[in-house]
Simulated scan of single mutants.
Amino acid sequence: MTSAAEDVLTYVYAVVPRAQAPHEALAGIAGVLGSPVRYLDEPEPPADAGAGDGAQGSLAFVVSAVPRRDFDEAALKDHFEDLDWLESVARAHHDVVQTLAGHATVLPLRMATVYEDDARAREALVRRRAAFAERLARLEAQTEFGVKMYLVRSDAAGPGAEPAPEAALSPGKAYLQRRKAHRHAQEAVHAQARLAAEAIEAAAARHASQRVRHAAQSGALTGPEENVLNDAYLVPDDLAETFRAAVTDAARDFTGVRVDVTGPWAPYSFVTPPDEAEEAPDERDAMDGPGDRDAPDTPTAPDTPTGPAAPGSAGPAEPPARPDIRRTAP
């Protein structure tokens, strides 16, 4: 007969500086599969904690107990084919991380980061303390904003696009002329979008400390519009409204494009420091894959914040609209 402790695993959402994260911050939060959320403190912080590594005293994992039957290796292989299950877990993961971000500097860990028990999770927290502390220091007093630009399609080809009435042309020539007009209209729209992107990037850079460029979204996430810019910016808290206003103003002078500024979000896109970004894809390849029960203890950023993340991604994707799990809405 198995004990209750043997039937559960320890699910880890994020790392926080314990002094910034009061117990009341977790009040009323339902975690993955409705599980209660709690802090798992390191045994005892080093005597020099906070001196040089940026940590503010002791660190803690934010954790839940989850059923082994849903998060062991075999179960995860099945669950990661189930989009409804993925969405549910990704949203719950994001809700916990985003709630904590309102109280503390938060370092999100990948969705489905699980350990055999609290003791194994605490060992990982102690072992990776210096890396976690350094990354928390880089993120302190900053949050993530998303900037997306879409092409606004028009049925009209534009002035002067049809130089001759189709009635005066053969069917073949009329078809070719329509294709030519459409191509010219598309080129004009994309040229306008490039100028708009340059203006937006220049405005955003004045008020942000870092930028990550994600792949453009497509399909159901964008609807009929074409997404041509999908960037994330790390913005100091005291510049958040200035950043939003600057980006919105920069886009105002351009026709044929629509710009969305979303946030603030927990800094999912900035978990990996800039000087490690080139190594992140290899790190992800080594860590991804269902059933990583002793999941990697070094967080990595998702390829793009859009859609559910695989086990081992740095948080839910751009929420599924930033909650794109974070975003159905960082």
Rank of each mutant, 00 (worst) to 15 (best):
A314W: 08
R122F: 09
E162Y: 02
A19C: 12
V271P: 01
V106S: 04
D118A: 15
E134M: 09
A245S: 11
R110M: 09
R69N: 06
V63C: 02
R138S: 03
L33E: 11
A266S: 03
A286E: 15
A191E: 15
S218T: 08
I200W: 15
G219P: 02
D118N: 10
A301M: 02
E6K: 08
E198L: 15
P290K: 07
A5S: 04
G263S: 01
E283N: 01
A204C: 14
P171I: 07
R244T: 05
A65E: 06
L59S: 10
Q192A: 09
V16H: 07
A167Y: 00
D7W: 15
R68T: 06
N227Q: 13
D155A: 11
Y150K: 04
A92I: 06
E81M: 08
E198S: 14
A202P: 01
A60G: 02
R178A: 01
E278C: 05
M149C: 03
P264H: 02
L100Q: 15
Y175T: 01
E123F: 03
P108D: 11
I325T: 15
D282S: 05
D231F: 05
V189Q: 10
T242D: 07
A168Y: 06
G223A: 05
V66S: 09
G172H: 13
G289W: 13
A75V: 05
A321F: 04
S170Q: 00
P67C: 05
G102R: 11
A185V: 14
R69C: 02
A309F: 07
Y115G: 08
A60P: 00
S218Q: 04
N227T: 02
L151M: 03
P36K: 01
P320L: 05
V16M: 06
L234N: 00
G34S: 11
Y11H: 08
H93K: 02
K180Y: 03
E81C: 03
A137W: 01
V189A: 14
H190D: 12
L59A: 05
T300R: 08
A55V: 13
L40F: 11
N230R: 04
A191M: 13
L195G: 12
A250D: 10
E73A: 06
D78V: 03
E87V: 02
E81P: 02
D82Y: 11
E198C: 14
H214I: 09
A204F: 09
A329E: 10
A191R: 15
L169G: 00
G223V: 09
A112S: 10
R252P: 04
P264R: 07
D292W: 07
T272V: 06
A25S: 14
G52V: 03
S269D: 03
R91C: 01
R122N: 06
E276M: 11
R211E: 08
T113D: 05
G52T: 06
R38M: 13
T248N: 10
S269T: 12
T306D: 14
R211K: 15
Q210W: 07
H182L: 14
D155E: 08
A188V: 07
R213H: 13
E44N: 12
V271W: 07
A310V: 15
S209L: 13
P299A: 12
